[in-house]
């Protein structure tokens, strides 16, 4: 039985000036699975994530989402894809400081041209679900790191994306808050059947995944056991 992968990276190579970030890296993500991308810092994990999400164009190689070549899309189409099908959680600096938490969560919906009222209603539901309903009227600068990160997770999930890209989502948090964020993130992803690409260097965080891929010196060397069911 072969399941058509949701997201495929094929032989990606990417250099920033003299430094090679990715070298023929390949990866497959199935719908609904949680994949940890592991490796030491500077190994190219984040670049791989950026390439997968269509944020950065690889020098060579191909990224296919649902069979479509992302590199061949226009910038507008890629933006629309990121808005509609993907969600993002970063380590920090991802919430717009002057918007309230509620408005931050509603932002992707509004970017998708949903009305303010409807967007904020759905945002409020997600804040509730991520146990941060009490901060909805506050600005990101006024909430704790853990709360902020849960708001960010809510923002990533609010559009009901097919893939969530999480780049060191617990990097700035203590263990307890990190655990809480990971639990809420993976639970919500599994419930909504969203795939998660989780970049982390922490094994404890990676333990929330279904399987792991290791990036070392720009190469994917992990156990490519594609087909592991969620």
């Amino acid at each position: 039985m072969t399941v058509e992968p949701l997201l495929v990276a094929d032989q990606l190579t990417k250099s920033f000036g003299p430094t090679t970030a990715l070298e023929r890296a390949s990866l497959q993500i199935l719908a609904g699975e949680v994949v940890a991308v592991m490796g030491p810092s500077g190994s190219g994990k984040s670049t791989l994530l950026h390439c997968l999400a269509g944020i950065v164009a690889p020098d060579s190689g191909q990224v296919r989402y649902q069979g479509r070549d992302i590199g061949a899309m226009s910038d507008t189409a890629r933006s629309a894809l990121r808005r509609g099908e993907f969600g993002f959680v970063f380590q920090f600096g991802q919430l717009v400081p002057e918007l309230t938490c509620l408005e931050n969560v509603a932002l992707p919906l509004r970017l998708n041209r949903l009305g303010r009222r409807a967007a904020e209603r759905r945002a409020a539901e997600w804040l509730e679900r991520l146990e941060v309903a009490e901060v909805s009227g506050k600005r990101p600068g006024e909430v704790s790191g853990g709360q902020g990160q849960r708001v960010a997770v809510a923002r990533a999930l609010v559009t009901a994306p097919k893939v969530i890209f999480a780049d060191e989502p617990t990097g700035a948090l203590d263990s307890l808050n990190g655990e809480r964020v990971m639990r809420l993130l993976t639970d919500a992803a599994r419930q909504t059947h969203a795939a998660v690409v989780l970049v982390t260097h922490e094994a404890r965080v990676a333990a929330y995944s279904d399987r792991e891929v290791v990036v070392r010196d720009g190469r994917t060397t992990g156990m490519e056991r594609s087909g592991v069911a969620a």
Binding site: I55, S79, A80, R83, F86, G87, F88, F90, V96, L111
Partner: peptide, 15 residues
């Protein structure tokens, strides 16, 4: 960073 993030989540440049 914030701008890059907003672009990453698919914000239109025009916006």
């Amino acid at each position: 960073r914030l701008l890059a993030m907003l672009v990453a989540v698919g914000t239109r440049r025009a916006t």
